[in-house]
């Protein structure tokens, strides 16, 4: 009888299927790249290869400004949301059954609220809050917090935090699932404080989850349109520029180039992380095996 591994065509078929799926998923990206290299831009009858659009990306003030805001939003969100998600996941692990249910419900609720309802609810909330803060500021004469909840960077960040925290929580919780609490106790027993035990023993084992959730948050922040554009107030983000261009005047050639650039960077970064991880695991295993070899007595 032939086993599954010997059936070379079965394996080839699986790979072919996988590659086909990836290809279909990537078609829009490739199409974007294709257009970004055309001298005449999108929808033109002629196609002439050029790199010029990439050259002028950074002369487009609107685009670079939006890019900067988007990056800033993403980074600030990561800085707040990842520690928050980590803390919640830790709390969840230690909680009793009833508290666990509550935590999960509260954390995952934002996932089930449609984006536009979510955004408008927050918008109304912030407007109210803003009014209260302004009134209080007027009455007390202390202006320091008068503009805290005016629509702007901070409200956009809060929107993004609420939006991304369920993902961060879940990703970190899953990596924590394999962690055995006895290890923390053993570390405590060796004289480690709670913080040292976490940092020396638990964190290295959930690092992958923490880093993945950082990457995930950045991607989500780049993607997000409805919440961000509702809450952002005056400035433009990359997505909002693209969308408004599309709706009004059609995307500029620079935007295609910027889109192409971002896709290329993202693919390169994630691709090299995967390759690096594979190579590193392989190398570490080889080193460990080599170290373990010369031991005589067993």
């Amino acid at each position: 009888m032939q086993d599954d591994y010997a059936n070379i065509w079965g394996i080839r078929l699986q790979w072919a299927y996988l590659l086909a799926v990836v290809f279909v998923l990537m078609v829009p990206v490739f199409y974007n790249l294709y257009i970004s290299f055309n001298e005449f831009g999108f929808g033109a009858a002629r196609y002439e290869f050029t790199l010029d659009w990439y050259g002028v990306i950074f002369t487009d003030r609107l685009l670079t400004g939006a890019m900067g805001w988007t990056l800033a939003l993403a980074l600030v969100t990561v800085v707040f949301v990842v520690p928050m998600g980590l803390l919640t996941a830790k709390l969840f692990k230690q909680a009793g059954r009833r508290l666990k249910l509550t935590v999960v419900a509260v954390m995952l609720l934002p996932l089930f609220v449609p984006a536009d309802i979510f955004a408008s609810a927050l918008l109304v909330f912030f407007k109210q809050l803003n009014r209260i803060f302004q009134t209080v500021a007027e009455m007390t004469g202390i202006g320091a917090f008068e503009t805290w909840f005016e629509l702007g960077f901070m409200t956009a960040v809060i929107g993004l935090i609420i939006y991304t925290i369920p993902y961060v929580f879940i990703v970190i919780l899953i990596t924590m699932g394999r962690y055995r609490a006895e290890q923390t106790e053993a570390a405590r027993s060796c004289g480690a404080t709670a913080w040292r035990a976490f940092w020396d023993v638990e964190f290295p084992q959930i690092r992958a989850g923490v880093f993945s959730s950082c990457a995930f948050t950045v991607i989500l922040a780049f993607n997000e349109y409805v919440r961000t554009s509702t809450l952002k107030g005056g400035f433009d983000t990359f997505t909002s520029v693209l969308v408004s261009q599309m709706l009004n005047i059609g995307m500029s050639e620079q935007s295609y180039a910027m889109g192409g650039l971002i896709s290329a960077v993202a693919i390169t970064v994630i691709g090299s992380i995967i390759v690096f991880t594979l190579v590193r695991t392989d190398r570490l295993q080889r080193i460990e095996r080599a170290k373990a070899q010369p031991v005589g007595a067993d």
Partner: peptide
């Protein structure tokens, strides 16, 4: 707390880092 006591514990399993 455990780290301030003159004790040290050996666990049944899974406790090596």
């Amino acid at each position: 707390p455990p780290d301030k006591r003159p004790t040290c514990m050996v666990f049944q399993s899974y406790a090596l880092f």
